[in-house]
Computed example of a mutant assay.
Amino acid sequence: MSKVVLVTGPARSGKSEWAEILAMESQKVVIYVATAVENSEDKEWQERILQHKQRRPQDWATLEVPYKLSATLANAKPNICLLVDSLGTWVANLLEQDELVWENIVQEFLETVELVAADIIFVAEETGWGVVPAYPIGRTFRDRLGHLVRQLGGISQDVYLVTGGHVLNLSLLGSPLPKIRAFN
């Protein structure tokens, strides 16, 4: 039986670190699925990527998957734990897709997640807790990520919120909302 886990929270909250702890505790072979696109001209971005790489155990394989996430998940074997970091970056990579294409990508993604034989731990940013973005592309990003996280949370066995230096298991503390059928 595969297990789907969602770890969410604000920037720099420790989401990735908590997800890494959960992956180690899985006692499975861990494959880190990096959704970031490296950019040698952006030194700060490269430093963030380096920090993540240095923190991970040496025996973890890494797959760089900025776009074709569903295909990567579909090919995972049962003895694997995939750690996908992060959904916000994946959404950003696909932000130029029109709404219909995006909805199809999300539908395929969610259907794939429910069929995957491996354990999967997703890391996702919470972007909707702040100011409404002043630009349409920012609002599109925030809305798409928010919808995706809500839908994924609805099919995850465990959902964690990492904030303020603490981890909360929302699966134990809260009640799930009904599944949403359409984008609003």
Rank of each mutant, 00 (worst) to 15 (best):
M1Y: 01
K3M: 09
L6Q: 04
L6F: 08
T8F: 04
T8L: 15
R12E: 12
R12F: 12
R12D: 07
S13P: 08
S13M: 06
G14Y: 04
K15E: 08
S16F: 03
S16I: 02
A19W: 02
A19L: 02
E20K: 02
E20Q: 11
A23K: 05
A23Y: 07
M24E: 14
E25S: 06
Q27G: 11
V30E: 00
Y32E: 01
Y32L: 00
T35W: 12
A36D: 05
V37I: 15
E38W: 03
N39V: 08
E41I: 02
D42S: 10
D42A: 10
E44G: 09
E44L: 10
W45G: 07
E47V: 12
L50Q: 15
Q51M: 10
Q51C: 04
R56S: 04
Q58P: 04
D59W: 11
D59R: 06
L63R: 09
E64L: 04
V65P: 01
V65T: 08
S70M: 02
S70Q: 09
L73T: 00
L73K: 01
A74F: 01
A74T: 01
N75P: 02
N75D: 12
N75M: 12
A76W: 00
A76G: 00
A76R: 00
K77L: 13
P78F: 01
N79R: 04
I80Q: 12
C81S: 02
L82E: 01
L82I: 06
L83V: 01
L83A: 01
T89A: 14
W90I: 10
V91H: 09
N93S: 13
N93C: 13
N93M: 14
L95T: 05
L95C: 07
E96L: 10
D98K: 00
E99N: 13
E103A: 15
N104M: 12
N104F: 13
V106N: 07
V106E: 15
Q107M: 12
Q107C: 12
E108L: 11
F109D: 03
F109G: 02
F109Y: 08
L110N: 06
L110W: 05
L115G: 01
L115C: 03
L115Q: 12
A118Q: 00
D119H: 06
I121K: 02
A124Y: 06
A124M: 06
A124G: 14
E125M: 05
E126N: 15
E126Y: 06
G128Y: 11
G128H: 11
W129L: 15
W129A: 15
P133T: 06
P133D: 01
Y135E: 07
I137E: 10
I137A: 09
R139I: 02
R139H: 04
T140H: 04
F141L: 08
R142P: 02
R142V: 11
D143F: 07
D143G: 06
D143Y: 06
L145N: 08
L148N: 07
L148E: 10
R150W: 03
R150S: 00
Q151C: 13
L152C: 05
G153R: 03
Q157Y: 03
L161D: 12
V162N: 04
V162R: 07
G164I: 14
G164K: 09
G165T: 11
V167R: 13
L168D: 11
L168I: 15
S171A: 10
L172D: 13
G174I: 06
P176D: 04
L177W: 11
L177F: 09
R181Q: 15
R181T: 15
F183R: 13
N184F: 10
